[in-house]
Amino acid sequence: MFEKPVLIREDGLRHDGRRPDELRPIKMEVGVLYNADGSAYVEYGGTKVLAAVYGPREVHPRHLALPDRALIRCRYHMAPFSTSDRKSPAPSRREIELSKVIREALESLVFTDLYPRTTIDVFIEVLQADGGTRTAGLTAASLALADAGVPMRDLVAGVAVGKVGGVLVLDIDEVEDEFGEADMPIGYAASIDEIVLLQLNGVLTREEFIEGIRLAKKGAETIYKMMKETLHRKYLKVLEEV
């Protein structure tokens, strides 16, 4: 058992030197996989995630297909080597729950009724976990769907707000998640101003919750801008080549 680290230092900065409202260094790239119809790689600090989209494509087994819309199938999965102790590759209860909330977040954005009798498959692999894997995964999934050319109402940016050492902080990492008081992951579609994913694991007062939402929105807006830039970067280049 490790000693609880100092989460908020005397100078008001966090254990890794960030301000409370500061994101970790974020990197993103689209179209990174050869086989997938759309793909994305996203890094939030030490958290590294890949997402791939296949589809819209035929559903197997056939009887699962819906006559009036596309299915969305989503798998959030952590690589066995992504954590400090090896994680069994079999899906855990946590992964099953997160696959569900990420799928539901994507359902609210994808125009599924444009592709009846098909499936849109979204696969998220966490390659290294350092806190905020579901939110990085959601961001990556959204980019991969855009890269696949799937029509959507908006992109979604994921980010978690936490409470550590009594302070609300943006984009918590693994240490802050483990030793902090609360973790509130959020998926925010900035252009249509909708929250499509919202969970809270921890204890907050009413005021802290409302302030947390405000902070998360701010962080998500920054990430959202980066997502657009990432897509522009690739597709403007493609456009120039044509």
């Binding site: 909330v101 909708e194 994913l197 969970q199 809270l200 204890v203 007062t205 009413r206 919750f209 939402i213």
Partner: peptide, 26 residues
């Protein structure tokens, strides 16, 4: 909890929600 603190949240369902409604919901 009995001290009126929020101790957990889960949004479910296939539509987004407006952030402005959250205050009212809580």
């Amino acid at each position: 909890d009995e001290n009126n603190r929020v101790v957990g949240i889960q949004k479910t369902g296939m539509r987004g929600i407006k952030p402005s409604t959250l205050e009212n919901i809580v």
